[in-house]
Amino acid sequence: MGQCYIYGMGGCLGEEMNQKQRATRRRRRRYLLLAIGLLYLVSVPWYRTSEGGLRLLWGLPDWVAVSVACYALVAILNAFAWRLTDVDDGDALPLTLSERPESSPDRNVP
């Protein structure tokens, strides 16, 4: 827990803002993941019929071009989603041998 520098009526304002920001990031990340799921559905041409012969788009069969476009969009959205992902290692630094807790899987520390 960090030290509080700005206090408001409800307690620490800095922490409140931090929590709000985190909630917003989590919400945006969820929307991005939902959009990625939809793009995956569109990337597979289950909704297409094989009538009309070969049509090219960007030098590829059109159904292939749609899939590639979907996967390119997935890559972009997923990159944003990872930037919004908080992987919190906690306050603990990576464990060294001497700091390993008793109940961790490394139970046989000599």
Binding site: L33, G90, L95, P101, P105
Partner: peptide, 27 residues
């Protein structure tokens, strides 16, 4: 291309929970 990209998408389910546990518990 889709299934290789799916790996980095599915990591969203794994990484945010597993990584903190791994660091703090010494996996």
């Amino acid at each position: 291309t889709g299934f290789m990209m799916a790996i980095v998408v599915v990591f969203h389910v794994l990484v945010p929970k597993l990584r903190p546990a791994a660091v703090q518990r010494g996996y």
